[in-house]
Design a protein around this nucleic acid. Structure first.
Lengths: 136, 136
DNA sequence: AACAATTTGTCCGTATGTATT
DNA sequence: CAATACATACGGACAAATTGT
């Protein structure tokens, strides 16, 4: 299970796949460190750039967060609370713009929900905190 | 309207903001090229790293896609079709895993919707193609 | 089919700043 | 205060992929 520099899939995608698998299997639990850039670079025999792009990719998927100087850790995802879609309303999911993300203080890789009420009112919610429901 | 290397906001964020504004204003229409890394680097007098980080950010927001050797272009977002949430069902929005993204042929920065029916059936949809609705 | 041009992917080196331990 | 590790930023260089000719 090593990284193949001759593969057609970019090295940074391979590394991201590798780490993602470790997270999804539970081998890397929430809060666990995925290792420093230097360590990952040396362990896998790849360059800094590739490591940074792999981590950026995982960040953009909301799987990890990185801080200084603790490095990159598996993100702890919040519990989802139930939100009922209003009758006659609609919802779209999308990525927040830069300004939105900063003003809502969202981690990278967290989509938002635009909840439209029947009267034209709009609410923007962090998508990873919400489970949309419709009663039977 | 130039990039200020002395600003507190990072150069790459400034460039991303700049390009994002051009996309949102329609100056850069879907399908249009945002320019090669080299070109952007020279035009704005910044390093290629900064350009790459800016573009990676926009990719993670689902605003652009990049390929070789065509460079980075404004993403064409599909029309949203209406999908009704089943009575007694629920929906969560999240980022797709790498495998999911590839199998669904999703661009970076596109969330998915997990639509759960009342009988435990699950459907995964590209979030940017869908508008969830609940009848009044 | 073969080739050239373009552009990103990836590597390396260096440097400074900043936040946390 | 020192050490650590990342964030940001610049530079150069070659490899690889895909387009178009």
């Amino acid at each position: 299970m090593a990284i193949d520099p001759y593969s057609h899939t970019p090295v940074y995608v391979q590394l991201a796949d590798l780490i993602r698998a470790r997270i999804e299997s539970g081998e890397l639990a929430p809060g666990a460190s995925v290792g420093s850039e230097m360590a990952l670079s040396q362990e896998h025999g790849i360059g800094r750039d590739a490591v940074r792009m792999a981590i950026a990719l995982l960040r953009s998927e909301g799987l990890v967060t990185t801080s200084r100087p603790m490095g990159t850790r598996v993100r702890e995802t919040p519990q989802r609370r139930r939100v009922e879609i209003p009758p006659g309303g609609s919802v779209i999911a999308r990525m927040p713009s830069g300004r939105e993300r900063r003003s809502l203080q969202l981690d990278e890789g967290v989509p938002v929900l635009e909840v439209h009420g029947p009267d034209g009112d709009v609410e923007v919610l962090a998508a990873d905190e919400v489970e949309l429901t419709r009663p039977a």
